[in-house]
Design a protein around this nucleic acid. Structure first.
Length: 888
RNA sequence: GGGCUCGUGGUCUAGUCGGUUAUGACGUCGCCCUUACACGGCGGAGGUCGCCGGUUCGAAUCCGGCCGGGCCCA
C-alpha cells in the first residue's frame, strides 16, 4: 500500500501555479452569509479593465482569432445571441488561460431592410419622402442608438470582448473594405452584371438571393382551361400574357400531333411554339404546361434550354405591365381574378381543383416572391472551390458540414448581390452616359458613393465626362462575409497578417448564408479557407419546445434572467442546456439549478476560508491520509476530463464534471470525511488543508471561463489583489490509482453505514459501538472514518471470522395459512424444530402430526445473526470489504 | 419526396464503435436544523430506453423496416 504522494515531481506543479498562497487571505467573517449576485457582478464589472482583453499585435503567444458574428443592431440582444456569445466567451477565456493571444472582436452588421422599415415607422415617412442621404442619416442614428443599448447587455453578461477590435459595417472605415473587395472581385471576374431572372420581392422592391427565399405551404387553385384546343392546367393564369411556349413530354402520345406546331394564346392572341421536354410530368394536370417568363424556377430552366422569348408581364411593384393589355396596372391577385372571369365568360375555363403548393416568399416580409428578369450584379459561384475549402475546415459538430455540402450541391444560379434599397454599401461604379462604359474609382478613393460623386477620369472608351452613378446597393451579406478579412487585418495589400482565423462560431440557421458567403469570398480574395474551425450552435427554443416567437408568447429575454438570477446563472444555463450544436430549450429549472450550485460553491468557499485561516496550510506538506490523496486524485481526473471537453467545445460535459467534483466529491464526501480532522488542532490537519486549498484553487480556475464574476469573487478571498482571469489554466496532475480505488471504497463504506443508521431509525450522527472494517490493504485514514460515522473504527487486513447463526424464522403467513389451514401452527412448530443445518438447506418434506407433508415454496425464510469474537454484530459488505458493527 | 437530426421514469437529460442491478437534474415522498450550507444533508418511490423484426451467449447501444418530432432543401 502506497503512502503519500508517489509522484512528487507532478506534485510540484501545484507549487508552480501558486506563488503567494494563503498568508494574506481575507478573514472569513468578512464573507457575507449569502451570495448577492447583483452586488458582486456590478462590483467586478466596474473593476475589470477592457485592456486586459485586447488582442496584442506584438505578442509572442500563439494567436487565437475568433471571427465572431456581427449581430444586427435591433437594440435587443436576444437569447439566441446570448447562447452563441456564451460559447464564444467560454473558449475565449479558456484559450487566454491556456496562453493564447486571443482576439474576441465585436462587430455590428448594420445595413439592411429592417432598419429602413423601422426608420419609416419612427419618422412616419416613406423612404421616398426624403433624400437618400437624409434617409441614410436617420438609419445611422437609429443604429448607433441600438448598438449602445446592446453593448450594455454584452457587458452585463461579462463577455470578455476585445473592444479595441470593434467594427461597425456602416462606418466608412468598414464599408470601404466592402467596396475594395467588390472592386477586386470585379477585376478578377468573380463579379459581373447581367440581365438574368432573379428572385424579387415586390413589397421590398428589391432583388433577393436564393438564401433569402423561404418557403410557405399554401393552398391554391389549379385551373384547367382550353388553350387553342388543348387543355392546360395552371396555377398562375395571370401570367398568360407572359406565356412564351407550351411544353409536353416527348413520349406523351396524346400530344404527338402538336409537334412542330405553334399555338395561339387565349385572351391575348400571340403565337407560341410547342416544345418537348423530359421534365414535363405527363401525370400532372393535363400533361401539357404553359411556360411563362417567369412563374417559377422550372420556367427559367425551360426558357434557357429552349431559347424562348422573354415577355415581362409583372413589374417591380408587382403590377401588370403593358403587354397585359387591358389588365395593365392590376396587381397579380386582381389580374388573376379578372382573367379567370374572362375565361369563364368565353366558356374556356373547364374546371378548377384545389392544390397544395409551396411558394417561395421573402424571408423578411413573407410576401410571395416573383421571378423577374432584371439587370443585376452577381457573384460567380464555383462549387468545387467552396467544397474544397469547406472540407479543409474542422466542423463542430461534424455533421453540420453536410448542410454546407447539400447547399453548395444544389446551387443553380449565381449569387445576386445588388439590391434596390438605400441603407447599404453603395456599389462603387459609374456608367458613361454616352457609351455606357463602366467606370470604377481608384482604390485609394474608397469609400465612394457614386450617386454623390463623379469619377476622376474621363470615360476610357469615349472620353466623355458625363456619368451616371449606380443606384443599386450591395446585399448586406457582402458586408458581413468579409468579417474574417476585416478582423485578420486585410487592407488589400497581400494576405491579411492574422489570416486565417482560428474559429468561426455561428448558428446553423445561417450556414447557407454567412458561412457559405464567407468561404466563397475568402477563397475568391485570398485563395484559402477563412478559418481552421467552425463551431455551430443550435437555436434556442421556448419552454414549450417551439421556436420563440411573438405569436406564441414564449419569448424569454436575457435581461429578465439577468435581473432574477444574474449573468453567471444564465451562462451556466448556456453551458449545460445541451451539447454544442443541438437546439436547446429554454428552461428556468436549469437557471435555478445553476443558482443553487453557486450557493453551494459559496458555502464551500466559506468553509475553505474558515479552515485555511486557522493556519496549518503548507504547500510542501506530504499528503498521506487516504481521504486527502483520494481528493487529489479525483481532482486530477476532473481536470483531465474538463480540459479535454474544453478542447472539443463540449461545455456541457466540462461544466457537469466541475459541478460533480465540487458538489459530490468535495462537499458531500471529502469535507464530510475530514471536517472532524480539520476541527482538531494537531498536525494531521496539514494534509487536509493542502488538499482543500488545491481543490478550491483549481475549481476557481476551471469555473473562471463559465462564471467569471463568481469565480473572481471566490478566488479574491484566498488571493487578495489577484484575478483568477489572469491565472493559467489548471495543470495539476496527481497519479495514485490505489487512492482512487480505496478512497471510492471508503466513501461507499461511509454511505453504507449511513444507510444502516437510516434503516435502523438512528440519527446520522448517532454513536455506534465498535466498527471493524476488513479491507484487503491497510489504510491510513487519520481517524476520518471514525469521526465521520461517530464510531470506534478498527481497520483490519485479516479475514473476518464470523459465525452465522439462525436467530429466527420468518413465515410467509399467506402461503402457510392457505396451505395448512388449521395445521398451520403445527407446521410452524415443526419447522422451528429443524436443526440449523436443515433450516439453511430445507428438506422437501416435513412430518406434521405424524404425516409426511410437502413444504411449499416460499413458506419461510430463516433470519441470521452474526457473531464476531463472541459478540453479536451486524454485517455490511462493500465489494471485497466487510464491515462489522457491534450491536449494543 | 430527398438530406440531416432526434425519440430514455411526471418533465428535461447522460450513456449509443454491444457486456454486470440505465446517469444526473427538477418534481415527488420519508427522515434529519450534526459549529460551510434547510437556497442544505441522507434515504425511498417512479423507466416495456418510440414500435416491430434481425444479428449475438448478450442490444438503450449494431442492422433492417415502421411510427412520431425538429431542422434544411426540393
Amino acid at each position: 500500500m502506497q503512502q503519500g504522494c508517489r509522484n512528487s515531481q507532478k506534485c510540484d506543479q501545484y507549487i508552480s501555479f501558486n506563488d503567494q498562497p494563503s498568508p494574506q487571505m481575507v478573514s472569513s467573517d468578512q464573507l457575507p452569509k449569502n451570495y448577492d449576485f447583483s452586488e458582486v457582478e456590478e462590483r467586478w464589472r466596474n473593476t475589470w479593465r477592457d485592456e486586459d482583453n485586447f488582442f496584442d499585435p506584438n505578442s509572442k503567444k500563439p494567436q487565437f482569432v475568433i471571427d465572431t458574428p456581427p449581430p444586427y443592431p435591433t437594440g435587443n440582444f436576444h437569447i439566441g445571441n446570448a447562447l452563441n456569445w456564451c460559447y464564444i466567451d467560454f473558449f475565449a477565456r479558456y484559450k487566454r488561460m491556456k496562453g493564447f493571444n486571443v482576439m474576441f472582436p465585436q462587430g455590428w452588421d448594420c445595413h439592411g431592410l429592417p432598419t429602413e422599415v423601422k426608420v419609416e415607422e419612427l419618422h412616419n415617412i416613406t423612404k421616398n419622402d426624403v433624400s437618400r442621404e437624409e434617409f441614410r442619416k436617420m438609419c445611422r442614428e437609429l443604429t448607433e442608438k441600438n448598438i449602445a443599448a446592446m453593448r450594455i447587455t454584452l457587458r452585463k453578461m461579462a463577455f470578455s470582448t476585445d473592444w479595441s477590435n470593434e467594427y461597425i459595417t456602416m462606418t466608412p472605415k468598414y464599408y470601404s473594405k466592402t467596396q475594395l473587395s467588390f472592386l477586386r472581385m470585379l477585376a478578377s471576374g468573380y463579379i459581373y452584371q447581367s440581365e438574368h431572372p432573379v428572385n424579387y420581392c415586390t413589397r421590398c422592391e428589391t432583388a433577393i438571393a436564393f438564401a433569402e427565399v423561404s418557403y410557405d405551404d399554401r393552398e391554391t387553385q389549379l385551373n384547367y382551361f382550353d388553350f387553342d384546343g388543348v387543355e392546360i392546367a395552371t396555377t398562375r393564369p395571370e401570367l398568360l400574357a407572359a406565356c412564351v411556349a407550351v411544353a409536353v413530354h416527348p413520349g406523351d402520345d396524346r400530344y404527338h400531333k402538336l409537334k412542330g406546331r405553334t399555338m395561339k394564346v387565349p385572351l391575348f392572341g400571340h403565337d407560341v411554339p410547342v416544345v418537348q421536354d423530359e421534365a414535363v410530368d405527363p401525370a400532372f394536370g393535363s400533361g401539357a404546361v404553359m411556360i411563362c417568363t417567369f412563374g417559377d424556377k422550372q420556367d427559367v430552366h425551360w426558357w434557357k434550354q429552349h431559347n424562348l422569348d422573354l415577355r415581362k408581364a409583372i413589374d417591380r411593384q408587382g403590377k401588370m405591365t403593358a403587354i397585359a393589355g387591358k389588365y395593365q396596372g392590376l396587381d397579380t391577385t386582381a389580374c388573376r381574378k379578372a382573367i379567370l372571369d374572362d375565361m369563364k365568360a368565353q366558356g374556356i375555363l373547364h374546371r378548377q381543383e384545389k392544390l397544395a403548393q409551396r411558394v417561395g416568399t421573402c424571408w423578411r416580409c413573407k410576401t410571395p416572391i416573383e421571378i423577374l428578369s432584371e439587370r443585376q450584379w452577381f457573384v460567380k459561384i464555383k462549387p468545387d472551390e467552396i467544397q474544397k475549402a469547406a472540407h479543409q475546415i474542422t466542423w463542430y459538430p461534424e455533421h453540420m458540414l453536410r448542410r454546407m455540402e447539400n447547399w453548395v450541391d444544389q446551387m443553380e444560379w449565381d449569387w445576386c448581390i445588388s439590391r434596390q434599397r438605400i441603407f447599404a454599401t453603395p456599389i462603387p461604379v459609374w456608367f458613361c452616359r454616352k457609351c455606357g462604359e463602366m467606370a470604377v474609382p481608384d482604390e485609394k478613393d474608397l469609400p465612394c458613393d457614386p450617386t454623390l460623386t463623379k469619377p476622376k477620369h474621363p470615360c476610357r472608351k469615349c472620353g466623355s465626362t458625363e456619368f451616371e452613378g449606380e443606384v443599386d446597393v450591395l446585399d448586406t451579406w457582402m458586408d458581413s462575409s468579409i468579417s474574417v478579412l476585416n478582423v485578420t487585418g486585410w487592407d488589400g495589400n497581400g494576405n491579411p497578417p492574422y489570416f486565417p482565423a482560428q474559429i468561426r462560431p455561428q448558428g446553423h440557421d445561417i450556414i447557407r448564408t454567412w458561412a457559405f458567403y464567407t468561404i466563397l469570398r475568402s477563397v475568391a480574395i485570398t485563395g484559402s479557407k477563412p478559418w481552421d474551425q467552425i463551431l455551430v450552435n443550435g437555436m434556442v427554443l421556448g419552454e414549450d419546445g417551439f421556436k420563440m416567437s411573438k405569436s406564441r408568447g414564449n419569448i424569454i429575454v436575457p435581461e429578465e434572467i439577468l435581473v432574477k438570477y444574474g449573468a453567471d446563472a444564465l451562462r451556466q444555463w448556456g453551458a449545460m442546456g445541451a451539447a454544442t450544436g443541438s437546439d436547446i430549450m429554454f428552461n428556468w429549472n436549469d437557471v435555478v439549478a445553476a443558482s443553487r450550485f453557486q450557493t453551494k460553491m459559496w458555502n464551500i468557499t466559506k468553509f475553505a476560508l474558515i479552515q485555511l485561516e486557522k493556519g496549518g496550510f503548507d504547500k510542501n506538506t506530504e499528503v498521506t491520509a487516504l481521504a486527502d490523496r483520494w481528493l487529489l486524485v479525483r481532482l486530477s481526473d476532473t481536470i483531465e476530463a474538463v480540459s479535454k471537453a474544453m478542447e472539443e467545445y463540449q461545455f456541457d460535459v466540462a461544466l457537469k464534471a466541475i459541478r460533480e467534483f465540487a458538489w459530490d466529491v468535495l462537499a458531500d464526501n471529502y469535507i464530510e470525511l475530514v471536517k472532524g480532522r480539520l476541527y482538531q488542532q494537531d498536525g494531521s490537519r496539514a494534509g487536509a488543508c493542502l488538499a482543500l486549498h488545491t481543490a478550491f484553487d483549481s475549481l476557481c480556475r476551471m469555473l473562471a471561463p463559465f462564471i467569471p464574476y463568481f469565480a473572481e469573487e471566490c478566488y479574491s478571498y484566498l488571493n487578495p489583489g489577484q484575478s483568477v482571469h489572469k491565472q493559467p489554466w489548471v495543470s495539476f496532475t496527481y497519479d495514485d490509482d490505489a487512492a482512487r480505488k480505496e478512497g471510492n471504497t471508503l466513501v461507499q463504506v461511509v454511505a453504507e453505514v449511513r444507510k444502516y443508521k437510516h434503516d435502523n431509525n438512528m440519527a446520522l450522527n448517532a454513536p455506534l459501538g465498535k466498527v471493524t472494517i476488513y479491507a484487503p490493504h491497510s489504510v491510513n485514514d487519520e481517524g476520518d472514518t471514525g469521526r465521520t460515522i461517530n464510531a470506534n473504527v478498527h481497520w483490519r487486513t485479516d479475514v473476518a471470522k464470523l459465525d452465522r447463526a439462525i436467530t429466527d424464522i420468518e413465515f410467509n403467513r399467506s402461503v402457510v395459512g392457505k396451505t395448512f389451514r388449521k395445521d398451520a401452527q403445527a407446521f410452524m412448530d415443526a419447522v422451528k424444530a429443524l436443526s440449523p443445518a436443515e433450516l439453511e438447506k430445507p428438506p422437501k418434506t416435513i412430518r406434521i402430526n405424524g404425516v409426511e407433508t410437502e413444504i411449499p415454496a416460499d413458506a419461510f425464510t430463516p433470519k441470521f445473526s452474526y457473531m464476531e469474537e463472541g459478540a453479536k454484530v451486524d454485517v455490511l459488505t462493500v465489494g471485497d470489504v466487510i464491515v462489522t458493527i457491534a450491536k449494543k
